[in-house]
Simulated assay, not measured.
Amino acid sequence: MAEQERGLSRALSAPARAVSRILAPAPAVTARPALPEHGTGLVDFALYVDGVRQDGEWTYQSAYASARSTKHAFVWIGLHEPTPEEFSGIAEAFNLHELAVEDAVKAFQRPKLEQYEDMTFAVVRTARYMPHAQLTETSEVIETGSVMLFIGEHYVITVRHGAACRLRPVREELERRHELLAQGPWAVFHGVVDRIVDIYLDVAAAVEDDLEMLEASVFSRERRSNIQEIYQLKRELVEFKRAVMPLQRPLQLLVSGQIGGVPKEPRRYIRDVNDHLQRVIEQLLSYDDLLNSVLQARLAQVTVDQNNDMRKIASWAAIAAVPTALAGIYGMNFKFMPELEWRYGYPMVLTLIIVICGSLYRFLRRSGWL
């Protein structure tokens, strides 16, 4: 227990630790800890009553006890890439299931929704578009991460991995909408998932721009994209689909009411998020089909180019065969051969070679082989 309390104390800012040592025997967390968003461990922690953030200093245990004894109250803890030591104290204070805790510490889990007695554990994959001047065979188009949520009757704990989706704007937006935040922890779930899906829409729009430029490049006369560039975008699209597609099942369970404990009002908002998710999925499926078509078109172009090259090689080989044949004939070491002693034999053979080769070139040129 002492190790856990020391882990929690390290997550606080220096001023907060000084105040907590004076006012309470246990390490306390201020209402708004001055911690960097990009650091690991604790990002924010607060007690909410009727959707209003409560000022004061709390330990996890005291805040949770206050939430359980107060109507329409819950605790919201935000974490970013916590270590097992940093998370162990929270897991003990809120009696979190060990399997869910193990998944929360590990990043990049598959999107899912699981229930453990009085707690629901959700995993949502995040994504963001990586701007780039030009698509290449090594371009990173989409970066993914994950957000885990522990949702209980009087608490919600968000654990973020990666930099694909910051959750501080979600908290600030919900704190301005007291009537929605008063709905409890599931309102936080809606706010987090809604922001993630909105970013999905932005990523899908940016990928569509890349796809249009790639399509124009494939059919351009000046420059044609390499197959490696098409394959790279297709690979990035597959990564995006792995983040988006599995989220359908958890949202369907919530919308259909198969997951208990979800208030009616947040469920309506989640239904709207599910509609947006379906739109993203439809876009991804269409992008995948279009990218397959672009890839097939580029492969067909490569095949046509190879055929054109083979025809050119064959045409020049046919032209080169004429002087080779005549030179081979007159290069034979026979004593009695026609025209060997003829004065104009040599210029006549050269003229014959030029005429035949010129006629072949003109014929092959008109046939499109040269």
Score class of each variant (00 low, 15 high):
Ala325Thr: 08
Glu236Lys: 00
Asn308Arg: 15
Leu12Ser: 05
Arg223Asp: 09
Leu352Ala: 15
Glu239Ile: 00
Ala16Thr: 07
Phe87Asp: 09
Asp305Thr: 14
Val302Gly: 14
Ala104Glu: 10
Ala187Gly: 04
Pro36Lys: 10
Pro27Asp: 00
Val192Cys: 11
Gln306Tyr: 00
Leu237Lys: 03
Leu290Glu: 12
Ala73Gln: 13
Val52Arg: 15
Leu23Glu: 05
Leu167Thr: 05
Gly41Trp: 03
Asn274Lys: 07
Asp309Val: 11
Phe108Gln: 13
Arg168Ser: 12
Val188Lys: 03
Pro347Glu: 09
Leu180Ala: 08
Ala107Tyr: 04
Ala26Gly: 00
Leu201Val: 06
Arg298Val: 05
Val49His: 02
Ala327Trp: 03
Phe108His: 09
Phe240Pro: 08
Tyr200Ala: 11
Trp76Ile: 03
Ala67Phe: 00
Glu339Tyr: 01
His97Gly: 11
Asn226Ser: 15
Ser217Met: 14
Met348Trp: 07
Pro15Trp: 03
Ala182Ser: 14
Leu233Arg: 14
Ile354Tyr: 13
Gln4Val: 06
Ala93Glu: 09
Leu149His: 07
Gln54Ala: 06
Arg343Thr: 09
Met213Glu: 12
Gly162Lys: 12
Arg10Trp: 02
Ala297Arg: 14
Ser367Lys: 15
Arg271Met: 12
Asn226Trp: 10
Lys71Leu: 13
Gly331Glu: 03
Gly328Phe: 02
Leu253Thr: 02
Thr120Met: 06
Leu23Lys: 04
Leu254Asn: 08
Pro33Gln: 08
Phe87Val: 07
Leu291Gln: 05
Gly260Val: 01
Val322Met: 06
Ile90Ala: 11
His132Met: 02
